[in-house]
C-alpha cells in the first residue's frame, strides 16, 4: 500500500476520504468531499433529505462507486487501485472485501435475512466469512444479542419482530464481527416514532463503550448528545463541521441555521420537546 505504516498508527484517522465526487448521470451528488474518521470517534452526519449524506456513507464501504477521489481505510485504498500505468481502475472484489472487512453496517431498511432466525442472522457472517466454528459463532451471537437486549428472541424470525427489535438485530449483526468501525445509515428512519428511542439507546450505549461509528441521522437530539463531531452536508458538499455544542449553538452558516430552525420548529410544534440548542433530551 502506498501509505507507509507510521510509528503511531492509532493516531492516524481510521478512514480518510479525499476529494470524493460522484455523479448519477449528469447530476452531481457529491462535490469534492473530504473528511476523516478518527479511532473511537462518534461522527454524526446530518443534512436535509437528498443532500447526499447516505451516499457519502455508502461510499465509505464502497456499496457505491465514485468517479473521483479516494477512500482509505486503515491507510489502504478502498474500491480502486492504480494499475501499472498509474491509472485508476476498479479493484477486485476480493481486495475490496479485504479492505472493507473491519467495517460493518446498519441499514435503514434493516436488510436482515428473512430466511434466517435472529441467532443465525448474527452468527452466519462469522461462520461464512470469518470461518469461525459454529459453536464459537453462536456463542458470540448470543453475547451481542444480549448486549442489544434481545437474548429472549434468538429463535424468532425477522418478520416476527417489531421494527425496533429488527434494527437491534441489525446492530447485533454489525457488532458480532468485531468491527473497527460501524456505519449507521439512518438507522431509525424506517421506524415508527415510538420505536425510535429503544434503537437510539442501544447506539448510545455503544458510543459510551468507545466504538468508532459514523451515524447518518435525522435525530438532532441524538446527534447533540452522542456525537464527538457533527458534519453538516447540503447539496452534496460539506458545509461545516465541528463539536455539536459549537455547531448547534452557533451555526456558522445560514444554511445550517435554517436547517436547525426547521427541525426545532417541527419538534416543538409536534412533540413539545426542548430545543436542541439546550442540548435537549429527545430520547
Amino acid at each position: 500500500m502506498t501509505t507507509p505504516t507510521s510509528a503511531a498508527p492509532d493516531r492516524e484517522p481510521l478512514v480518510v476520504v479525499r476529494n470524493l465526487s460522484k455523479w448519477y448521470g449528469a447530476h452531481q451528488v457529491l462535490h469534492n468531499v473530504s473528511m476523516e474518521v478518527n479511532r473511537s470517534e462518534v461522527l454524526c452526519i446530518i443534512g436535509p433529505s437528498g443532500s447526499g449524506k447516505s451516499t457519502l456513507l455508502r461510499c465509505v464501504n464502497f456499496l457505491e462507486d465514485f468517479a473521483e477521489g479516494e477512500v482509505r481505510v486503515g491507510g489502504r485504498l478502498l474500491g480502486y487501485r492504480e494499475d501499472l500505468k498509474g491509472r485508476r481502475v476498479p479493484d477486485s472484489r476480493e481486495n475490496v472485501a479485504r479492505v472493507r472487512r473491519g467495517i460493518s453496517m446498519v441499514f435503514q431498511q434493516f436488510n436482515l435475512w428473512p430466511h434466517l432466525s435472529v441467532l443465525e442472522n448474527v452468527a452466519q457472517p462469522l461462520v461464512v466469512v470469518q470461518r469461525k466454528p459454529r459453536a464459537e459463532a453462536e456463542a458470540k451471537a448470543r453475547q451481542v444479542l444480549d448486549r442489544v437486549g434481545l437474548a429472549a428472541k434468538l429463535d424468532a424470525y425477522p418478520n416476527q419482530l417489531s421494527g425496533g427489535q429488527q434494527q437491534r438485530v441489525g446492530i447485533a449483526r454489525a457488532l458480532a464481527i468485531d468491527p473497527e468501525l460501524i456505519l449507521f445509515d439512518e438507522p431509525t428512519s424506517a421506524l415508527d416514532p415510538e420505536l425510535v428511542g429503544e434503537v437510539l439507546q442501544v447506539i448510545k450505549r455503544l458510543a459510551d463503550d468507545g466504538l468508532t461509528m459514523v451515524v447518518v441521522t435525522h435525530e438532532m437530539g441524538f446527534a447533540a448528545q452522542v456525537a464527538d463531531r457533527v458534519i453538516f452536508i447540503d447539496h452534496g458538499a460539506i458545509v461545516e463541521q465541528g463539536p455539536p455544542q459549537t455547531l448547534f449553538r452557533n451555526p456558522g452558516s445560514e444554511r445550517l441555521a435554517q436547517f436547525l430552525e426547521t427541525w426545532v420548529e417541527r419538534n416543538q410544534i409536534f412533540t413539545d420537546a426542548p430545543s436542541v440548542a439546550d442540548g435537549g433530551k429527545v430520547l
Binding site: S104, F107, Q109, W113, P125, V128
Partner: peptide, 21 residues
C-alpha cells in the same frame, strides 16, 4: 430486495457465499 445482496456485500460475503447462503 436489493438490500439483501447489499447486506451480504457489506458483510464481505463473496459472490458465491452470498449466492449460496
Amino acid at each position: 430486495p436489493a438490500g439483501q445482496r447489499e447486506a451480504a456485500l457489506a458483510f464481505s460475503y463473496s459472490r458465491y457465499q452470498s449466492w449460496r447462503h
